[in-house]
Nucleic acid binder design. Structure first.
Lengths: 233, 233
DNA sequence: AAGAGGTTCATAAAAAGTTTGTAAAAGCGC
DNA sequence: GCGCTTTTACAAACTTTTTATGAACCTCTT
């Protein structure tokens, strides 16, 4: 498991199942999330649904070939594209690269080389597009980019851990959140057996966001289960 | 002559004069500006003086080899690097790519392929103008060309590093900027583990731009995360 | 139905561990 | 030498973790 590769999504496009299978296996083992497509058209669909960070594609495919796929992708996206092909002739390479591909690797290729090229291209991808979107529920709004929380229009200063706890609760507003889930989300999957933290931090949060911390209106406890966040109407 | 290649500067590094000569000729004919260096050390010098848009380098060189050159360049720069080498073994490729190279082409290579790869990498280079635009937020305005900053109409003298720090913060005004991001932007991607710089420079900046440096109004600290620039209304 | 025993929850506060602001010394390049 | 950057040091401020205590709650027994 490597930090820089975590959660990066790679779309593999090839009409030969044995190729996609081996790529899926190898890339998955490096910690990447993989989806595959067997032709250009379905690749475009998956691309739009899933927004991968990198595309690896074959050249010869039904429906829409590799060069066509590159052109289509480039109309909308800057995603790095690596073309894999058995055709090693220079004009094929030039055509693909000029169509928008970033790299051209000739089959058969060494898997370590491909992985290194994948790393090289992913390095350039803007670090972690913030998947975190602003949330607004009831009297609360939370902006992860600015790292700010507003309660009834007032800004509330939160420490990092408080922020993460509240963030998780807001994202699951209205639902009962188990101790385990909350602990795992904020403290990591390891410390799921220490609910003392939660009591302390929930207490702190209530002091900061509740009008009457002793009789919480938003941050309710769900006995024997966990907590539940109830946004004001 | 092609439009996309106009005025782009390419640094060619190789200790064999016949290689640099043919590359210079070919690349020049495509409208690129070329300089050459015959070893890693002088390549670094030329790089700093000339800020090329792309570097093409051999692997085997006196003084500082291709891999070392990649590492050195990556400390400060995101410039695309294409490595040319007679060594076609996979571990050479992996080593170079992981050292920061973006592409690895084995000699002998087709010139059209190389040109296509050059075009592919140059496509990704951010057009300079984008980074050089003036910014004005709240009480601040910053002119990158003149390297001047005005706070409430008053000019403030800043050192180069101070300027870059403030520039980055202004470009992300209102958002929490992580230590990592700020360090990477100003000191290069390698020095992301030295937040001491930031403390010092933020302190300097506050002295220069805040009315009361001890109680900052603009340059706020976001504890455990980084800093946030809040423009005056 | 009431009470004992055990568990969970809330709160406060002490202890431990980090981070931040600041000053100043050392290093570097022109 | 001079100005800028880097390094070092340390106290102050802050966050997180740990600990303690009492109240509230459930279960089981009588």
């Amino acid at each position: 498991m490597q930090i820089s590769g975590e959660h990066r999504r790679i779309l593999v496009v090839d009409d030969e199942p044995q190729i996609t299978r081996v790529l899926r296996t190898t890339l998955s083992s490096q910690g990447y999330d993989i989806r595959t497509a067997s032709d250009g058209e379905s690749a475009l669909e998956t691309f739009h649904d899933w927004s991968p960070h990198l595309v690896i594609t074959d050249l010869a495919m039904p429906n829409l070939d590799g060069v066509g796929l590159c052109r289509k992708l480039r109309e909308k996206s800057q995603v790095p594209i690596i073309v894999l092909s058995v055709r090693g002739q220079e004009r094929n390479k030039v055509e693909a690269l000029d169509a928008g591909a970033d790299d051209y690797v000739t089959k058969p290729f060494g898997m370590n080389e491909l992985l290194a090229r994948v790393r090289a291209h992913l390095r350039r991808v803007v670090p972690e597009e913030k998947q975190e979107q602003a949330i607004a529920v009831g009297d609360f709004s939370l902006d992860p980019e600015a790292r700010r929380v507003l309660v009834r229009g007032e800004e509330v200063r939160l420490t990092p851990k408080e922020f993460e706890v509240l963030s998780y609760l807001l994202r699951h507003a209205g639902k009962a959140v188990t101790h385990r889930a909350l602990l795992a989300a904020v403290w990591g999957a390891n410390s799921t057996e220490q609910p003392e933290y939660l009591r302390v931090f929930v207490g702190q949060l209530r002091k900061k966001i509740e009008a009457d911390p002793a009789n919480p209106k938003y941050l309710l406890t769900e006995p024997w289960v966990g907590y539940r966040f109830e946004p004001g109407e």
